[in-house]
Computed example of a mutant assay.
Amino acid sequence: MIRFWSSIHTWTSLICTTFLLMLCLTGLPLIFHHELNHALGYEVEPPPLPPGTPHVSLDRVVEAALAHRPGEVIQFVGFDRDEPNIAVLSMNKTAEANPDTNSHIVIDRRTGAVLKELKSNEGPIHFLLKMHVDMFLGLPGKLFLGAMGVLFVAALVSGAVLYGPFMKKLDFGTVRRSRARRIRWLDWHNLIGITALTWTLVVGTTGFINALDDLILKSWQAGQLAEMTAPYRNSPRPDALSSLEAAVATAKAAAPAMTPRIIAYPGTMFTSTNHYAVFLAGDTPLTARLLKPALIDAATGALTDLRAMPWYVQTVFVAQPLHFGDYGGLPLKIIWALFDMATIALLGGGLYLWAVRRRKSGMRSNDETEAGAAQAFLGVAE
């Protein structure tokens, strides 16, 4: 049985380690993406105004964005959970255009003034995010990295199974400093691996879930969203859209304990050609991630449907911030970064131990060879 788990552990580890090192290295700065984007000028702070300054109508915000980029249309309106005085309007030439090419107009909600224009594909954080998410390969890249996540979880589980039998003669945390360098590396490898096991399982599992987000979105579009918009399936987009301010007020009246986070304009991927989709969320760290769409008829301003999204979509909403430690503010991000660096050491140590074992494989006895098969992630004790 040990030989079986050793074989699983070794091969799953070797296949995915290189890609996991890339994910850990790119993921480390992404943990602090808000802070880094702010420092680099890719996030905007509104100018100081007296506390309690009221917001202007969203219709005025819309007018400011359309005047800033004449000839274009609004696809989405987003509200920053941490900065309620800012609205970000994503614009493109048509409602159906690829959002990756959008321009993002940052507007002060208190004055209606345009603060800055940003592009979807600008900045070093965007480069790192694309590398981390899909290696610039789109859906195939996502699915490939998702498969690497599955192998990573398999390596962790098999390593945990092997850890007990191979460490039963040593106290927890033992590092045999008087032994050869390979043995010292092995002991550190074991200690880091078992200490970070829970974190690596969480990050590996949420990474796999996040890799499926495009497929999950398409499933929601073909299922619940199609059901919600079925009566309007063959209706054209209205020539004139009703008030966005009134649409948001209608959505808030239907869900008074929730706050609008994103508004999808008619014709975009998150709604129909006839509806504003106002996505609302709660105010706790968890419920703030769980969105509930309210569909507002874009011609009449009437509410046509409001329902919670399916569990599989909510799973993605929970997994995405958890993957980057974006739940508990800066302290949790620092903890996530420390575990990320520990995982980099774990992966690098595993590669070193495997290389040493390969060089010395001809000199080992049968027993040593069997034991050495577990040395890719959590390792063994000798």
Rank of each mutant, 00 (worst) to 15 (best):
F144Y: 08
I209M: 15
F317E: 05
I209E: 02
I8D: 02
R357A: 14
N121H: 13
L118F: 06
L162H: 03
E382W: 10
L170C: 02
A257K: 12
C24F: 14
F79Q: 01
G193W: 09
G348H: 02
L25Q: 01
E63D: 14
G78N: 12
P321F: 08
G328L: 12
A337W: 11
A230W: 08
T206I: 10
Y312P: 02
G123Y: 11
L191Y: 14
L338Q: 09
A113P: 02
L115W: 13
K130I: 08
T250V: 11
A255C: 00
R184Y: 07
P238D: 06
L201M: 10
A254M: 15
F152I: 08
A319S: 10
F76R: 15
P140F: 06
A196P: 04
G159L: 02
A253G: 12
F339W: 05
S57E: 09
R69Q: 04
I344Q: 08
L139V: 12
D59R: 06
L346I: 10
A294S: 09
T304P: 01
R177S: 11
G372C: 08
A211L: 06
G41T: 12
P231F: 12
S243H: 12
G78R: 15
T101H: 15
L241D: 07
I107Y: 09
A337Y: 12
L143P: 03
S120C: 04
L295Q: 10
K292F: 06
I86W: 13
R179G: 01
E72T: 15
Q320L: 09
M167K: 11
E227G: 03
A288L: 09
Y163L: 13
P256E: 03
L191F: 14
P50N: 02
T111G: 02
P165S: 11
M22H: 08
R179Q: 15
T273V: 04
I74P: 05
D82A: 09
F270K: 09
L28N: 00
Q221E: 06
